[in-house]
Design a protein around this nucleic acid. Structure first.
Lengths: 198, 198
DNA sequence: CGACATGGAGAACGATCGTTCTCCCCGGTG
DNA sequence: CACCGGGGAGAACGATCGTTCTCCATGTCG
């Protein structure tokens, strides 16, 4: 129930925040990796931000790469859980499907929003780290499957999910680059048109 | 007129490739920065790949950051020139507008395609390098203006350009992550629906 | 022929990184 | 109280980075 003041946003409402060492390390990793990028954050910065000694840090995670992958894994779970909690509270069908873009809009408006952590990580290390590349692909696959479920619930054909994924993905990057939340509304409108036409 | 065998793709057909030192450096920068990321490529790798000595390299570009920005500037010009050369060869209106997505499909299929260089660079260094962030924003602004011109030529309202930008942007990242060119076709179909509805 | 500027190859330098090691304190057990 | 194992703080280590400097071969001009 603790809500940290984290500038990184995306703190799941019921998640414990930093009571044990592993949680504190992952909290620090999420805040720093997301804000500054993977390579820009050193193990020493993680140690300072988490208050966990270097020795313990390396016992919890055998290497920086392992910590990066744990960060991406937890971020994926939290991100999708937050989205599902928001959308699944709406009536199934068209309204729930479009709620995805409303939720994106609230995410874009969070301070410190800097685009998709997985796209950023993939662009930075995807060509040299198979683990990072796989985590990014797994995240997008899971997101696509979730959209496909919503599309089916709205009676839309399967190929609509792919198009909705493109709209959501484009909105995320465009919001990050432009620094505004407007792409969420534009994507929502486009999604409505595509849904009506399907 | 020289066509290098470059794995980076996006080599403009009429552009001279590496006859002078500056051109060779920029060619090497484009190939290496795009393939491996900005921070993963050191000045020594640039020196080896370009055959230009370190001393001359630093006389041409006073710092690595200056070289990164020159790389992004030239990539922006080439990318948009290639796109325009492809699309503007089609009849104005609907066909030219949708040709944008055909061109994206040929780009996605190039070996070594790894998404948008500007999105990747922004994710990696955008939070610490104002020059990189500005270059990425300028690129996307220019792309959006180009789309707006095509939309106007097709008799579509102005807001359609924003939605097409989201589709294109989403197709680029999704193609990079999934490693397939299918997002180009999906985006083209969605664009057609949005255009018809407008 | 000789003085000199030029530019290449690569060593050097200081900083930083991921990772490991040393030293020391501290609590539990005989 | 004496011993000992574990953990924290941070130094140490080897590698790599961006940047600068040294040394030397080469060619030009008087």
């Amino acid at each position: 129930m603790v809500l940290t003041q984290g500038e990184g946003g995306l703190r799941m409402s019921g998640a414990p925040a930093g009571e044990d060492a592993e949680g504190r390390v992952l909290d620090a990793a999420e805040e720093l990796f997301y804000a500054h990028g993977l390579q820009a954050v050193g193990m020493d910065a993680l140690r300072t931000a988490s208050g966990v000694s270097l020795k313990r840090l390396y016992r919890l995670f055998p290497s920086k790469e392992a910590l990066v992958e744990a960060y991406l894994r937890r971020r994926d779970e939290r991100w999708r859980a937050e989205l599902a909690a928001y959308a699944d509270a709406r009536p199934a069908g068209r309204e729930r499907l479009l709620a995805v873009f409303d939720w994106l809009g609230t995410w874009f408006a969070e301070p410190g929003f800097r685009g998709c952590a997985f796209v950023n990580s993939f662009g930075e290390l995807g060509s040299s780290s198979p683990g990072v590349a796989a985590a990014a692909r797994a995240h997008k696959d899971a997101f696509r499957r979730y959209l496909a479920g919503l599309a089916a619930g709205a009676g839309a054909p399967a190929h609509l999910a792919d198009q909705l994924l493109l709209l959501a993905e484009g909105a995320i990057t465009t919001a990050a680059l432009s620094g505004t939340a407007a792409p969420a509304r534009q994507a929502r409108e486009a999604a409505g048109v595509l849904l009506d036409a399907a």
